[in-house]
Design a protein around this nucleic acid. Structure first.
Length: 912
RNA sequence: GGGCGAUUAGCUCAGCUGGCCAGAGCGCCCGGUUCACAUCCGGGAGGUCGCAGGUUCAAGUCCUGCAUCGCCCACCA
């Protein structure tokens, strides 16, 4: 019974093909494809670098540095873009035969991770000090390791062709040694120092921040004009005041001077006199300093060296007392007198209220100004005097600047080199100590006995200076970017002179977003050159833009417009996401990810799937197609598509060499869809339908090469299809597409065939013209109509391919003639092309007046164009100065358009 | 206050070193169940390439200025 039900009869009664084992499933299901293909890659061991254990000298190393996904949260689209670009580059190089290596890693985002764990503790009613350092770090590691395995899974879903389990991680023990070594070298060279400086303090994370970790945001605030009572020579109060504008009245108790510009006429007489700090009745001097702006505020400045960067500098110049009135949590301390214990913002209100009560507030103005926020905790940053470790940046910057100036390091797009140089030229010392627990601990030990410092790579047991054993390690940890800055060499085994280091340093490409140039790229260049005897860490810095949400805003959790890449993958497939991301923006430009584009990419994958299904369906089980060899003798469409493929291959090669991945992807897309599938596959059908199997080698060959070209952009679908196609290749060599060779102009045959391309273009135009007439005259799409093609001065290639034209244009019988007289001229609709005319006898459908109007419009257009071309050719400046091929092209254009114009006029004359 | 980017069809964007009668996808209009694909096929409409000057035989592409939007850097209280 079931046998009877499933038995199929062939309606045409012809040959009934059995489904070969290589047939693709009818529908394209990305999820299934991804799962199957990934398993195949893993089984084949393709992700292990140097899986074969070979490091042949003949293979060029290609190493790419992978920017870190953030350990604090979910994978975001920016990182998906990173993976898409890096993996595309890596797969391409692997297919070129290079020895590829990723240096993928994780940004330990230490401040944020510490904050998360602190918050966990807070929920339990505890602080890190309650649980102690050991237990705290254990909890952090627990959190981090879970994040790491989640990231590994996400990379897998993205199709990342790197073995994530091998990833180097700046917090792992290997890099730890590199970190200490670097610190010690810098210290010994006098490039690291410890000092009391004004730093950016994050009261929430309770740590210092570097300048870069502070984001300035406009905040609506107030300008308070405060009267500072002026004292007379004996220290007695006068009725005079100096009015000072401030946005932060809570810092008034920390004032240790009032400063004015020496050139300021208004205040010149006050210089050297004294005023009272209005909150505390403490006398301070009025000093003159050129740094004071005469335009800002009232022109007089309260000097608060402990809580303002400019004031700190003024204080240094004048030897002012530094009065720090704040605790680490931004409450005021006992030096703030009556305000001790208050939070800084409460204190602000209280100070204002008290001054108002004393009548010392002259006026209040609303004022919007930029306020620093901690990038990682979001808290308002408090400038504060503090004892911290610093790196002297200038000496490190010099070679790093030179490396970019003289081109040893190249930026793509190159405009970012200027951004980099501008920052580097004005670089300031880098505060590297952080008061958080999870991070590389500063390798400095203090001696209880002699107060000496011991800086060491291995944990020391005694003081370097006095030998006393009572030494304590510095409590602080290092800035995340200090260890990340060592990435290009620390992950390869430095400070050991390892094989990896020798082979893979310097790396070829550093790929990242442009917003991280200063944080990371600049630091890597500086520190790597310092450690690696002046050898820059990479050749090319390839920068991509930011991924924005559909609404064009930067994606952020607080805006609630974050898109989860995994959800996108579930919906459209990894290939669609990757193709969309890579072909989206030009390098360095931001992109917007929209559903429309994702859909388009998914449709492309589906199109490829179905096109491949057609090719595979035409093949018999076990049949192997050789690459087409007898190309010159082949029909026009074969020569055409092979030439187009060769041209595409060259273009793609050039674009990829130039890091224009998006354009390369687009070119492959266009070739496959609008040339191979829309034209070649359709043109091959007439032959196939009549049992002529000669198109198969071409179909197989072009599909094979296209899959190879596309693989870096859409790894899963291409691999899945290629696995089936492989069984029909004569000599597939590789077992998987991921390991197959990338097409190049050397291995794609034959070479370009301009003549075939030109001739086929005429054929295409002919078909289009017939279709156009049919559509315009509303001929039922299924109906065959007779047609004439007048092939003016053709080489016979049209006549030779008349069946192709017939089928594509659904025109039959099709008469290809060489003179107008051989075609009817009444009751026809005609299209005049450059090299041919198309004539459709449509009898009753033809309206002479309409035809006249249509032809007249075309005549007008053609005339206008001809005039422009003739004007250009008539200009002897043009003939003298333009390159010969441009002139020749214009002449050809003129001849074509003139011929067409003549044809159009004749057509009009034929109308009744 | 410096610096950078964007401004091209209704929308989102390509257009590299100047040669284009300006491209794609989506959307829109007309028409299609042809045995790879309706996640598709055929046809079509739609653009003073932000504005104003300039260089050039030739400018969306180079230069200058301006406008709008966005980003980065900067100690102006």
């Amino acid at each position: 019974m079931p046998e009877v039900m499933t038995a199929r009869t062939d309606p045409e009664g012809g040959r009934s093909r059995r489904q070969p084992p290589s047939a693709l499933p009818k529908t394209y299901d990305p999820a299934q494809v991804e799962e199957r293909v990934y398993a195949l890659w893993e089984r084949g061991g393709y992700f292990r670098p140097r899986a074969d254990g070979a490091k042949e000298k003949s293979r060029r190393p290609f190493t790419i540095i992978m920017p870190p996904p953030n350990l604090t949260g979910e994978l975001h689209l920016g990182h998906a873009l990173v993976v898409a670009l890096e993996d595309a580059l890596t797969r391409w190089h692997r297919m070129l035969g290079d020895d590829t290596l990723w240096l993928p890693g994780v940004d330990h985002a230490a401040i944020a991770v510490n904050a998360i764990v602190e918050r966990q503790l807070a929920d339990e009613g505890r602080t890190r000090h309650d649980v102690g350092r050991e237990a705290f770090l254990a909890r952090v590691w627990d959190f981090v390791n879970r994040s790491r395995s989640r990231i590994a899974e996400q990379h897998r879903r993205l199709g990342a062709s790197a073995d994530w389990t091998r990833e180097a991680f700046t917090m792992d023990p290997g890099p730890q040694r590199a970190v200490r070594q670097t610190f010690k070298r810098l210290y010994d060279d006098g490039l690291i120092y410890r000092g009391e400086r004004l730093i950016n303090w994050d009261p929430e994370g309770q740590t210092a921040l570097s300048d870069l970790e502070v984001d300035y945001r406009e905040v609506a605030g107030h300008f308070w004009y405060v009267r500072y009572p002026l004292l007379d020579a004996e220290g007695g109060q006068t009725q005079e005041f100096v009015t000072i504008a401030t946005t932060r009245p809570e810092t008034i108790p920390a004032d240790t001077a009032v400063a004015v510009n020496p050139a300021d006429e208004r205040y010149r007489s006050l210089i050297g006199r004294r005023v009272l700090v209005p909150t505390s009745d403490r006398p301070v001097a009025v000093i003159a300093d050129a740094a004071v702006s005469m335009k800002a505020g009232s022109g007089a400045l309260k000097v608060t060296p402990a809580h303002d960067p400019l004031d700190f500098e003024i204080g240094e110049r004048h030897g002012l007392e530094i009065l720090n009135i704040m605790n680490p949590d931004a409450t005021l301390n006992e030096r703030a007198g009556a305000y001790a214990g208050l939070d800084r913002f409460e204190a602000r209100d209280r100070v204002v209220a008290d001054l108002e009560a004393k009548g010392l507030i002259e006026k209040v103005e609303p004022y919007t100004h930029a306020v620093g926020h901690s990038q990682r905790s979001g808290a308002i940053v408090e400038p504060m005097i503090s004892l911290q470790w610093f790196v002297s940046a200038k000496p490190l910057a010099q070679p790093a600047i030179a490396a970019v100036r003289d081109g040893r390091i190249r930026f793509v797009p190159d405009r970012f080199a200027r951004t980099y140089l501008q920052w580097m030229d004005n670089i300031r010392d880098w505060c590297i100590s952080r008061q958080i627990w999870w991070g590389h601990r500063i390798p400095v030990w203090y001696c209880d006995a002699c107060a000496g410092l011991t800086v060491a790579v291995q944990d020391p047991t005694a003081c370097d200076h006095c030998g006393d054993a009572h030494i304590r390690q510095d409590e602080d940890t290092l800035d995340t970017w200090f260890s990340s800055g060592l990435w290009p060499h620390s992950t390869l085994g430095w400070p050991d002179d390892s094989d990896d280091l020798r082979r893979y340093y310097p790396t070829q490409v550093m790929e990242t977003a442009y917003d991280i140039i200063f944080f990371w790229v600049a630091r890597m260049i500086m520190l790597s050159m310092y450690n690696m005897r002046g050898v820059p860490p990479f050749e090319t810095v390839y920068l991509h833009g930011l991924v924005r949400a559909q609404d064009g805003h930067k994606m952020s959790k607080s805006l609630g417009n974050v898109i989860d890449p995994l959800k996108v993958i579930d919906r459209y497939g990894t290939d669609a996401l990757r193709f969309t991301l890579v072909t989206g923006p030009a390098p360095g430009n931001d992109m917007r990810l929209t559903d429309e584009r994702l859909e388009g990419s998914r449709n492309f994958a589906n199109k490829l799937w179905n096109g491949a299904r057609f090719v595979l369906g035409e093949l018999e089980a076990g049949e192997r197609a050789a690459a087409p060899v007898d190309v010159r003798a082949r029909p026009l469409e074969d020569r055409w598509i092979l030439s187009r493929l060769a041209r595409l291959t060259r273009t793609v090669q050039q674009l990829l060499d130039d890091f224009q991945l998006g354009e390369a992807g687009r070119q492959i897309h266009d070739f496959l869809w609008s040339e191979f599938f829309d034209w070649y596959v359709e043109a091959s059908k007439p032959r196939l339908r009549r049992g002529d199997r000669s198109p198969l080698p071409v179909l197989v060959y072009v599909l094979d090469r296209s899959l190879r070209l596309l693989h870096p952009f859409m790894p899963f679908v291409t691999e899945e299809i290629w696995q089936r196609l492989r069984r029909h290749l004569q000599n597939p060599r590789a077992r998987a597409l991921i390991a197959a060779s990338y097409p190049s102009k050397r291995n794609v045959q034959p070479a370009l065939d301009d003549e075939a391309e030109r001739a086929f273009a005429v054929l295409q135009n002919t078909v289009r013209a017939i279709r156009q007439v049919r559509a315009e005259k509303k001929v039922e799409p299924g109906r065959w109509v007779p047609a004439y093609v007048i092939d003016r001065g053709g080489d016979g290639s049209l006549a030779e391919r008349s069946t192709v034209i017939e089928v594509l244009a659904r025109a039959r019988p099709l008469h290809i003639v060489s003179a107008r007289e051989e075609a009817p001229s009444e009751g026809v609709v005609a299209q005049v092309l450059a090299g041919a005319e198309v004539v459709l006898p449509l009898g009753g459908l033809v309206d002479a007046e309409q035809e006249r109007a249509r032809l007249q419009k075309e005549v007008n257009d053609a005339q206008g164009y001809l005039q422009r071309v003739e004007a250009k050719l008539g200009n002897d400046q043009f003939r003298r100065k333009a390159p010969a091929d441009v002139v020749a092209r214009e002449e050809r254009r003129r001849d074509e358009i003139a011929g067409r114009l003549a044809g159009l006029r004749e057509r009009m004359a034929d109308l009744p």
